[in-house]
Amino acid sequence: MVFTSRAGGVSSSPYDSFNLGDHVGDNPDDVQANRARLAKVVGLDPDRLVWMEQLHTNNVTVVTEPQSAPVEATDALVTTVPQLALGVLVADCVPVLLADHHNGVVAAVHAGRRGARNGIVVKTVEKMCELGAQPAQIQALLGPAASGRRYEVPAEMAQDMEAHLPGSRCTTVQGTPGVDVRAGLVRQLLGLGVQAIESDPRCTIEDTSFFSYRRDKTTGRQCGLVWLTGKEH
């Protein structure tokens, strides 16, 4: 499991420099160079990295082979295939990586506010379990994302989120209603029986070493990446 920052790539401003998103207006050649660099660092062939057409859905897709194009209209990928790396692109949404190495099942989840509200993580864990994973064996890693102290939303939205994702409603540093998606997801994962949870506290809005859509609007995307090494079992 790895998470990237915006440093170490070839993209020019405002995508500087390690932008991995191919849908944000960056030079396609630069994006491919950055993705190739990522693959080299983690020791995989670039063709073994699988990406998603992320649309803030709660769709979960099982992948069994490399994909030449992003998997259409899905916000979570699950696989049991070794050396097939699942990528999630973010710039404030929560990247969630899940791995049951004992049973050989991994997943990458794009948990934005809408997807988290509509159960994308729950559906992903359920799909992992259908493929042999066990909640008690799953390790969960939540990456850098917009923090509750900076994620201001209307009061009605905060209330709706709390109804669907308990533990997510909060108050921002301005004293206004906010949403802490990571906090809600941690509580949700615990309720699903997942106990090995690590949540990176860094806020993408505050920390300029990360891309942030809410801060900059036109910007790149960092990623979370998870794969089976093939040495499991």
Rank of each mutant, 00 (worst) to 15 (best):
residue 96 V to H: 02
residue 195 Q to R: 14
residue 63 V to L: 04
residue 151 Y to M: 14
residue 42 V to T: 04
residue 46 P to Q: 10
residue 128 M to C: 08
residue 207 D to P: 02
residue 24 V to C: 13
residue 208 T to D: 15
residue 8 G to F: 09
residue 11 S to A: 15
residue 51 W to Q: 10
residue 90 V to P: 00
residue 188 Q to G: 03
residue 103 N to P: 04
residue 54 Q to T: 14
residue 181 V to D: 09
residue 82 P to R: 01
residue 97 L to E: 03
residue 206 E to H: 03
residue 142 L to G: 05
residue 151 Y to V: 03
residue 34 N to F: 00
residue 91 A to M: 09
residue 46 P to V: 06
residue 26 D to V: 11
residue 106 V to P: 00
residue 79 T to Q: 08
residue 68 S to I: 04
residue 142 L to N: 05
residue 28 P to Y: 11
residue 146 A to T: 04
residue 95 P to N: 08
residue 68 S to K: 14
residue 121 V to C: 09
residue 128 M to N: 13
residue 93 C to P: 15
residue 228 L to S: 03
residue 94 V to C: 14
residue 176 T to W: 10
residue 42 V to W: 12
residue 16 D to T: 06
residue 159 Q to D: 15
residue 50 V to P: 01
residue 184 G to F: 11
residue 143 G to K: 01
residue 202 R to K: 08
residue 54 Q to F: 04
residue 156 E to D: 13
residue 6 R to I: 10
residue 83 Q to F: 01
residue 18 F to S: 02
residue 157 M to L: 15
residue 115 G to C: 07
residue 76 A to R: 06
residue 43 G to I: 00
residue 181 V to Q: 10
residue 52 M to S: 02
residue 150 R to N: 15
residue 226 V to N: 10
residue 184 G to S: 07
residue 135 P to C: 01
residue 124 T to P: 06
residue 54 Q to N: 11
